[in-house]
């Protein structure tokens, strides 16, 4: 099992906008390069992408949480 980390600090969001569905739900299979969350910092929303494919078993952050550089965002099963 591996984790997906964020490269930047900021506030994390799991959906593209408050009205929309989350990018990914726990238990779903994702592809390498797929966006799983946004991090808001420096007045921009930046995509957090999966660096490998697999099944996203669990999110380790809540919508609106503050995150630090290299913090684990989600767990991934090969």
């Amino acid at each position: 099992m591996t984790t997906i980390k964020t490269a930047m600090p900021g506030v994390i969001y799991r959906r593209p906008s408050p009205e929309e569905e989350p990018f990914v739900r726990e238990g779903e299979t994702i592809e390498e390069g797929q966006t799983i969350a946004l991090v808001e910092v420096m007045k921009n929303f930046n995509e957090v992408k999966a660096d490998q494919s697999g099944r996203l078993t669990r999110f380790l952050v809540e919508d609106g949480d503050e995150v630090a550089i290299s913090q684990d965002i989600a767990e991934l099963e090969d």
Binding site: P9, G10, V11, E40, V41, M42, K43, E66
Partner: peptide
């Protein structure tokens, strides 16, 4: 003081 996300 804590540096917020609005720091550029």
């Amino acid at each position: 003081w804590k540096v917020t996300k609005d720091a550029d």
